[in-house]
């Protein structure tokens, strides 16, 4: 029993260190595990951002449940001026319509949108399909299968919206990420996938359409969805910074200025270029309106496709 006392003493000592360490650091929550696509951008964003604010900051990865766990943590920190979230599109504009969450689009102080990449509708280069029209025709006998990086993700929604709004016959097969879905596409387990330029460039893929309101530079011969006779569908993979509600206007302004300066810095631009992240800054008001609009649009898609609870 003596050893039990020793170990309890050791544990008690360790317990006190945490209290001593808690200082006024800025915590940047990334709702994904370290090393993921969002995390990499967040970690390149963080040094310049904290320099602009003049504080020490720490990136904390809080992963799980389609990024909603980390996002909920930001929402639940109401009034805390030392916590922000580096958020992906899905956690803010899709998940709240999919399941019961402790937050909604109104639970945040919006700071800025940092990057945004339009998604492409793609097939494997080894397939003989070269146009969306041909894809629709060939799907009539035997429906195609489209992959996604998980149920309720942007790739899923983009394709679900396409299927609802066109004659394309295709069914959904979710994977645990873009990587496994690419593996399935390479093995012809699935035939269609919607994802960003990064994916398009890294694998043997052929773009058939782009989910944006105008053609994308560098892909001038890829038509937009609207040009193909569908309603305009706008699906982009974007990221942005949010703070909890209840922080002072002054603090929110500091965040917004620091974010703008970071996104415009050479350091971040060089990184974004390398990582093929398309810088698309939006200020606090524009970002808030944008998220609200995307939230409504995604909700409509989910309802049309019968995916809401």
């Amino acid at each position: 029993m003596k050893s039990l006392r020793y170990s309890l003493a050791a544990l008690a000592l360790i317990g006190t260190t945490h209290a001593a360490m808690a200082a006024d650091n800025l915590e940047i929550i990334v709702p994904f595990a370290a090393g993921g696509a969002t995390d990499i951008v967040a970690r390149s964003f963080e040094p310049t951002f904290s320099q602009q604010l003049g504080v020490t900051s720490v990136v904390r990865n809080v992963a799980g449940a389609s990024a909603t766990v980390g996002t909920a943590e930001v929402a639940n920190s109401e009034g805390n001026p030392n916590i922000i979230g580096y958020e992906p599109a899905g956690a803010l504009s899709i998940q709240p319509s999919l399941k019961k969450l402790p937050y909604g689009p109104d639970s945040f102080t919006y700071i800025c949108r940092t990057v945004s990449n339009p998604m492409f509708l793609m097939v494997s280069k080894s397939s003989d399909i070269t146009s969306f029209k041909q894809l629709v025709e060939e799907s009539q006998d035997q429906p195609f299968l489209y992959g996604s990086s998980g149920p309720g993700t942007l790739p899923h929604l983009a394709m679900a919206a396409t299927v609802v709004n066109s004659d394309l016959k295709a069914e959904h097969v979710p994977y645990s990420g873009s990587g496994p879905a690419m593996n399935a596409l390479a093995g012809n387990e699935i035939q269609i996938m919607a994802d960003t330029e990064t994916i398009l460039e890294n694998y043997d893929l052929r773009p058939l359409a782009v989910f944006a309101d105008h053609r994308v530079e560098g892909y001038d011969d890829v038509p937009t969805i609207e040009e193909l006779g569908l309603p305009a569908l706008d699906f982009s993979v974007w990221q942005g910074v949010v703070a909890p509600k209840g922080i002072s206007d002054e603090r929110a302004k500091q965040y917004a200025e620091a974010c703008k300066a970071t996104v415009e810095s050479d350091k971040f631009k060089t990184f974004a270029d390398k990582a093929k992240a398309n810088i698309a800054y939006l200020g606090p008001d524009d970002f808030k309106a944008f998220v609200q609009k995307r939230f409504e649009a995604n909700k409509q898609v989910l309802e049309d496709a019968g995916l809401t609870q």
Binding site: G36, A37, M182, N183
Partner: peptide
């Protein structure tokens, strides 16, 4: 193939992308 097999290789891939 650029397809990470597990969490660990996914993190390595992230480091390469940086």
């Amino acid at each position: 193939l650029g397809i990470p097999g597990d969490v660990v290789t996914a993190m390595m891939m992230g480091a390469m992308v940086i």
